[in-house]
Design a protein around this nucleic acid. Structure first.
Lengths: 261, 261
DNA sequence: TGCGCTAATATGTACGGACAAGTCGGAGTG
DNA sequence: CACTCCGACTTGTCCGTACATATTAGCGCA
């Protein structure tokens, strides 16, 4: 069936380049073109499918956009993955949207200290036990006086200086402040969401009942070489905070970045 | 500068189609082609840049992959966004991973009834007040007896029949069962996460303390024409459940889905 | 006014050709 | 044996053409 000299009847209503892509995909899935090997060259595919180079390249482009293959000039088309990976993708225009802190709220720094992570905290932050961080803590309140959350921000000791730039008039996210000051480019953000309940001290600071449910978000920011340079933990009163996401059906894709040297 | 008769010198080392894409991008950013309007047609761009249709289309394809424009046969190229949007993208290979329910757990249906949404519930589900749904409720437990969560699944009345296929041996997600049985293709999934505390009835069913914190997830599944066909609400005991996400810097992309009817 | 048909226009698909540029192995040379 | 260079091969870029198909506006007609 697959790899026939010609792709079936051509009355399917599907474009030829899609038929070819499907056929190649099936061939990859069946092990005709194992992962890690090179696909037949364009010229060979042209003969195989009795088609034009343009059409064959269009088919290969589809596979590339799906993340199935990777093409490289002068070398060939490398098989990366055995099957189509329809992916649900969430889009966030900027890391800022991962915060979604209300604009009419402000962060107030109440403490800044240097800490060495104990086992329990290290596990919660997914950081290595014994590592040293500068911790900046305080509540975020609406201008109206309503509490937004309590936040603990952990940054690398060498970035401790940014503590003085936070709070008050500066409503920019911490990662952005660090990014500008030290040239860290955010490459990845990990978020963990869990529920808990407020212990006494923080409940008092936010003016909520002790033991009332809280929604906590732990965000880990990876910088230039994948190194985690900031971890923040925010604890929100449950009744006025929720976190929403939206995923859209699509393909994974890796394309159109600047290969140019 | 932008929209010159020819794109600068062509000695930049960058491919012509990228130069054209950059030029169009600059034009969009400067308001020459406002968001919501149509870009000049391919033929006009060919004249403008003194290039071939193939090259112009390649440039437009770049913009489309970046999410800047959307192309539509017979209509034109619509400007969607004013600028390149390096986006943080979360990839989930399949909607199934949005569940991440442990394999060694099972859903037990304890009730199935037809409900008309009251204002409060409708607001929580983000559905219209007064709309009718079939609600399937029950706990999900580990094989060991530990509670995973309590789940309320709301499906369109015409899909009520799937209730009989749930629970017990069928550990597949509800959306998948509906998808197969009725041909709904999941196009979008919205998730809202919030914290709450267990009320008596469910606390008893799951064997947790009344009033203990819970992590709740409300998932809304959009089907063929964007219509919501399933809403599920899961309430997890906080101490043994967290939700984690990972975002990677990349391009937003929307391509190669099956437009085919 | 409202409807349906038609023509113009836009993008999608598919064919053809040519040259550029990167990769890799083998022939040739020291 | 190690190194360089060259040529074969592969994908990238770019040009040309033709026809298919979806959309829309406008015309004609009831």
């Amino acid at each position: 069936m697959q790899q026939a000299q010609q792709v079936s009847d051509r009355r399917s209503g599907r474009p030829l380049y899609r038929e070819i892509a499907d056929d190649l995909l099936a061939g990859i899935g069946q092990g005709l073109f194992p992962v890690g090997t090179l696909l037949p060259g364009e010229m060979e595919l042209i003969q195989r499918y009795q088609s034009s180079r343009h059409t064959v390249r269009e088919a290969l482009r589809v596979l590339e956009d799906m993340g199935i293959v990777q093409r490289q000039r002068g070398r060939g088309t490398l098989v990366l993955s055995p099957e189509a990976q329809p992916a649900f993708v969430q889009m966030v225009k900027s890391p800022e949207q991962l915060f979604s802190y209300p604009a009419d709220s402000a962060f107030r720094v109440v403490s800044e200290d240097s800490v060495t992570l104990s086992g329990a905290v290290a596990q919660k932050l997914k950081a290595s036990k014994g590592s040293r961080w500068t911790r900046i803590s305080g509540p975020r309140m609406f201008d109206s006086g309503m509490p937004v959350c309590w936040t603990d921000v952990y940054v690398l000791p060498e970035y401790a200086a940014i503590a003085r730039q936070l709070g008050g008039a500066n409503s920019r996210p911490v990662y952005e402040t660090i990014s500008k000051a030290f040239g860290e480019e955010v490459q990845k953000i990990g978020i963990e969401i869990y529920a808990s309940s407020f212990e006494e001290e923080r409940a008092k600071a936010l003016g909520v009942e002790v033991g009332s449910p809280s929604l906590s978000l732990c965000r880990r920011y990876h910088g230039n070489k994948g190194r985690v340079f900031e971890i923040s933990v925010s604890e929100h009163p449950a009744q006025n905070y929720s976190y929403s996401l939206e995923f859209t059906s699509g393909w994974q894709n890796a394309g159109h970045w600047s290969w140019n040297k």
